[in-house]
Simulated scan of single mutants.
Amino acid sequence: MQQPRSRSVAVATLVMLVIMVATVVGWWVLLPEIAPKRITIAVLPFEQPVTTPGTPSHLGEGIAADIAVALTEVPDFVVLDRAASFAFRAERDVANRLAGELGATHVVEGRVRRADGRTDLSARLTNLGDFQVLWEEDLSGADADLFAMRDAVARAIAEKLVLLGDVDVSAGPPTGLDAYEALLEARALADAGDTARATALAERSLALDENNSYAHFLLGELYYRDARPEARAHVARALAIDPDSAPARALEAHLGFLADGNLAAYHGSLTDLVARHRNSAALRRLACLYEVAGRPDDARTAASHLRQLDPLGARPSGCAPFMTLDPDQVRAVPWRTAEEVLGAQPDGA
């Protein structure tokens, strides 16, 4: 007499299991559709009162660039290339253009003022989806506190956007203000293509503080442009100070390939840099490498991700060293596909 009841219980249990499995599968299928869009951050140059005496003209740009570098340490963030973000500094409708043209989901803005040995630094983080200010803070301290305030801003922004707790990010160790000012001017001149003046200022910055990793990297880049053999020594010094410097790693890999022609090692270095840091210089060269090696699908995927990082200048560059690749060497490379390195093409590609 108990059999029908037992059978009913078994059937009911089975039905419940089927419903539960279907629910889980349904959520799994729908998850990509409801998952939040990847965080893409634009960091604008910080405003800087022109009436502030003795303040370097590039201080606001330098603070913004440093914060952007620090935020790249968070794996879930895409931080737009400095040149792309800075191009919109004077736009009236900057927020809509950042979202529409660069695909930014968040923007960091701020203001820096130095006077009478004191520095005031203010910053805010805005969600470009609804233009809600998610975080803002005003900091003040002695000039020597500038770098601690800069890192505090980067850390607060990262922690606001990451839901898993504390985030340890840093734009690098502090340096002397005179060395920092010379370095900012050198970087601006390098961006403008004035290699001679940029080199002189980078050398001056290092004379004031020889332990600045970025200054060694920048001087290595400038020496490379002039085909000077000291380039590799400065890149090596940059990495001895900061082994995690993605720009220095990218330049080290490039100079190493030019010296020894080891394509497999170069490919491995580039894919590691791109997978871990989304370094735009490494990604440009990787896209080039894929294209010249006859891997058009990988080249397109890499170029799509490059457009996400640097929509205004996102063309593969630095291709000249690859134009005469040995076909046997190309075949010997254990190629990783662009999807393995980067994931699928980003939305809107």
Rank of each mutant, 00 (worst) to 15 (best):
V112G: 11
R124V: 01
E101K: 01
G193L: 10
P327T: 12
D326Y: 07
D298F: 02
I157R: 09
D120G: 12
F147L: 06
A64F: 13
Q3H: 08
A198P: 08
R5G: 02
A148W: 02
F217H: 14
D226Y: 00
L71T: 07
V50P: 00
A171V: 03
A104T: 09
D272Q: 11
L258M: 11
W135L: 15
S57C: 00
E61N: 15
S170Y: 08
P53R: 12
A188Y: 14
A275Q: 13
A227P: 00
E91I: 04
L273P: 01
R284F: 00
E181Y: 15
L312P: 01
R204P: 05
A246H: 01
P311I: 07
G165A: 04
T13I: 15
D178M: 09
E203A: 15
T199R: 15
G348H: 02
D130H: 05
S213M: 06
L201D: 02
E61T: 13
L59M: 10
V15T: 13
L309H: 02
A90I: 00
V169P: 09
L201Q: 07
R118E: 12
T72W: 05
F131Q: 14
D93G: 01
P346K: 04
S122Y: 01
V11A: 13
A250M: 12
R315W: 00
P173H: 14
G117K: 10
F77C: 03
D66S: 11
L258K: 09
A287M: 07
A240N: 09
E33C: 00
E210C: 00
L273W: 01
E181Q: 11
F77A: 00
V79C: 08
A35T: 13
S140D: 11
A70I: 05
G318R: 12
A87Y: 09
E203P: 04
Y223Q: 14
V235G: 04
D326K: 12
A253Y: 03
A215E: 06
T23S: 10
R89G: 00
Y223R: 14
D93M: 06
A248F: 05
M323V: 13
I34W: 10
A240W: 00
D298R: 07
L30Q: 11
L31R: 15
L306H: 02
R278E: 02
T52R: 11
N127V: 03
L177C: 07
A179P: 10
L342N: 08
R232L: 10
D145Q: 13
P173Q: 14
P334C: 04
V107A: 12
A248Y: 06
T195C: 01
